[in-house]
């Protein structure tokens, strides 16, 4: 057998991008289960549809770009984008909404920037933001938690956007929306006046806890470091806590902020996206803190139901700048105190 010439190292951990991606996909399962439990089959239908679309668009555009299809299709990155979109979109999204979101994510946000690893923005968030701006009504239709549709009804809604028996009874604004639109009342007052909201809050809390679990699993498998999610949650909690202390009537508490909306999904599955985030650990801290503050600001003063898409895209935009200023000090560059002669 001829001997070959290769550069060291000749050993490898055998970790693979596809394995990392598979772990991420698996880690979304608790959240997916919770979301389906509270909001019905919508998310599941969405997920299958989005995955199908994402793989299809990925293959198509890889073909058009003249790249090998199978290695990229099997790396799982398209599926991760699809999962994130499906989980972030409302369970009541119709087929075309998902189609728009996924196609824009894969084609524009990912491949037009050079494909996997070269996209400056998180593709899923770009698709999500596009839909949020273009179809605000469709994007805010969250199912009321007290009524779950049968699979058949959901299926019908998914394709026709109407359900025999009328849909309006089933949809409601999100907890965050209600919170924003009922300023002046304390949350407990709102909750007592609106049983739907109370239920919504509970559902939202459980979904968030499920995502938190999945995120901790990923952290345990060292898929990412703790810096970005912890920084994000801490800064969001800090801001919320501070304002809540000042004006408890106007601002919900830290725990409300942390356990509603897409907080945990974003913290562990989107803020941790390495491609579009900051590079160094210090950078990741800054990135996370930035996202947390922006989320708080947009949630409190903006007019969109949730703030993550915009907060993350804004921080994606600043990632190169953060990288420039958070270069870690390499070995031997630390300024150490001069050596004392009489060391032990």
């Amino acid at each position: 057998m001829g001997l070959i010439n290769l550069s060291s190292p000749h050993h490898h951990s055998l970790s693979q991008t596809s394995r990392l991606m598979a772990l991420v996909l698996l880690a979304t399962l608790p959240g997916l289960a919770a979301q389906s439990y509270f909001y019905g089959y919508g998310t599941l239908i969405n997920l299958v549809w989005a995955s199908f679309l994402a793989l299809g668009f990925e293959a198509l555009i890889l073909y058009l770009r003249g790249r090998p299809i199978m290695p990229y299709l099997t790396d799982g990155s398209a599926l991760v984008t699809a999962f994130l979109l499906a989980l972030a979109l409302p369970p009541f999204s119709p087929w075309w909404l998902t189609l728009v979101a996924v196609s824009f994510s894969i084609i524009f946000a990912k491949h037009l920037y050079g494909g996997l690893g070269s996209n400056p923005f998180n593709p899923a968030m770009v698709g999500y933001a596009l839909c949020l701006i273009s179809f605000p009504v469709a994007m805010t239709q969250w199912a009321g938690t007290e009524m779950t549709m049968t699979f058949g009804q959901q299926w019908q809604w998914f394709w026709l956007e109407s359900v025999t028996g009328g849909i309006d009874a089933y949809t409601s604004a999100t907890a965050l929306d209600i919170m924003r639109h009922t300023k002046g009342l304390t949350l407990s007052e709102v909750a007592s006046s609106n049983p739907q909201l109370a239920l919504g809050l509970t559902a939202s809390m459980w979904v968030n806890i499920a995502y938190l679990l999945g995120g901790l699993v990923l952290l345990g498998f060292k898929v990412f470091t703790w810096h970005a999610p912890v920084a994000m949650l801490a800064s969001l909690g800090f801001c919320a806590g501070l304002f809540h202390m000042g004006e408890p009537d106007l601002y919900p508490s830290a725990s409300q902020h942390l356990l509603t909306g897409a907080t945990m999904l974003s913290a562990f599955f989107i803020v941790t996206d390495p491609v579009s985030g900051a590079t160094s650990r210090k950078g990741k801290l800054v990135f996370g803190i930035g996202v947390g503050i922006l989320v708080f600001i947009i949630r409190s003063y903006g007019s969109y139901p949730d703030a993550f898409a915009f907060a993350i895209l804004l921080m994606n935009l600043s990632a190169p700048l953060i990288d420039t200023y958070t270069k870690p000090k390499a070995y031997g560059h630390q300024s150490k105190a001069p050596r004392s002669q009489g060391r032990p």
């Binding site: 550069s7 073909y63 058009l64 770009r65 003249g66 790249r67 090998p68 290695p71 990229y72």
Partner: peptide, 18 residues
């Protein structure tokens, strides 16, 4: 010294004929 490794698989195949 070492030369640059061969390109990523992304460009290792010739573009398809469109």
């Amino acid at each position: 010294h070492w030369q640059q490794p061969k390109q990523l698989i992304a460009t290792s195949t010739a573009p398809h004929n469109h």
